[in-house]
Simulated scan of single mutants.
Amino acid sequence: MKRIVIKRPYHVEIENVEIPSLGPKDVLIKTKVSGISSGTEMTLYRGTHPNLKTRKWGYWTEYPIYPGYEIAGIVMEVGRNVKDFSKGDRVVGLGTHGEYAKIPVNDLSKLPNNVSFEESTLAVLGATSIHAIRRANIEYRDTVTILGAGVVGILAIQHAKLSGAGIVIVIDLNKERLNIADKLGAEYTINVGIDNPVKKVWEITGIGSDVVIEATGNPEAVKQSLLLVRDRGHIVVLGYHTKPVELLLGDDFYHKELEISATRATGPIPGLPYSYIKWTSDKNLKEAVKLISNNDLKVREMITHAFKYKEIKRIYEEIDKGNLKGYCQIILNWE
């Protein structure tokens, strides 16, 4: 089988390897499509992912690295203890870019017939944004400001509305992404190349935003979040950060009595007691698939580019150099 590997920073290849053997709770998928999560994958491509230095978390600690975590395809084989999946099932899950993927059963969801493989790749980051919105504790008719109109930011718009937000404001520099945000539920979009976002948010709200979701991974956006949020408001850091964020805690954070929360991937690990945590990562993934199937989570407009997997070197280079304009979800075809 062929799979994508990053051998070292700025060096990506397609290699030939054996199809993986399964553990008792694994499922083998024949990949139809995979989604590029450009934020994470660029940190691996550039060598800036923090865990490459700290090596604290047990994944992506050294090269070679096998990128990707949005795989959709057909079940070919299941481990001996797998009960809920069978050969021929259409599925989506957290697997790396390759012709085949071995995925633990808890990282997998079946697909309804009305959800295409391409659309389903957005269920993984759909689950990530679900978890972030739950961390935000949005109350009915709250104003929510989202910094960053990338994939997770645009998904967060829709989840915020489903959670009862009254007004959603989206801030970005990319006009194509802001157009998508406008189509998918944002009441206001602010282009930072044209308007002062802090001034505009305060003009709209009068008191600042109840909730601010930072979805850029840019340290300056975290600092700006403290200016956008109201007194005793809540900031959720959804973007993945590879550089330090410098905050003067004795300024807005202190005087506004702010709450800042982190949000990690698709949620807590499966198997935790329901009395302790209701929504684990496996449940969030299945919920995202259900929302896409019911058209409550609209993802078709977010798919802006599709390529053959063999083009991965050029795709990474164009994303890295900023030459791939107006992209949101990028699909790799494996057939």
Rank of each mutant, 00 (worst) to 15 (best):
W279S: 09
I269N: 08
E259I: 14
L249E: 15
L272F: 14
K286W: 06
I235K: 00
Y254K: 04
A288D: 03
I292C: 03
H241F: 13
V289G: 01
K298L: 09
R300E: 09
M302S: 00
K243Q: 13
Y254A: 10
K256P: 04
L247E: 05
I269R: 08
A288C: 07
K290P: 14
E246M: 12
V237W: 01
S293M: 11
K278C: 12
L258I: 05
A262I: 03
L297C: 05
I260M: 09
A288I: 06
A265M: 12
E287I: 13
D296T: 05
G267E: 08
K278D: 12
T304H: 07
A288T: 01
P270G: 00
L249C: 12
K283M: 14
H255V: 11
I260R: 04
I277P: 00
A262Q: 15
D282N: 15
L258G: 09
L285N: 04
E301K: 11
S281V: 08
L291H: 04
I303K: 04
L272T: 00
R264K: 11
K290I: 07
Y276G: 05
N294V: 09
R300T: 10
R264L: 07
N284C: 11
I303M: 05
H241C: 11
E246C: 12
I235W: 01
N294F: 14
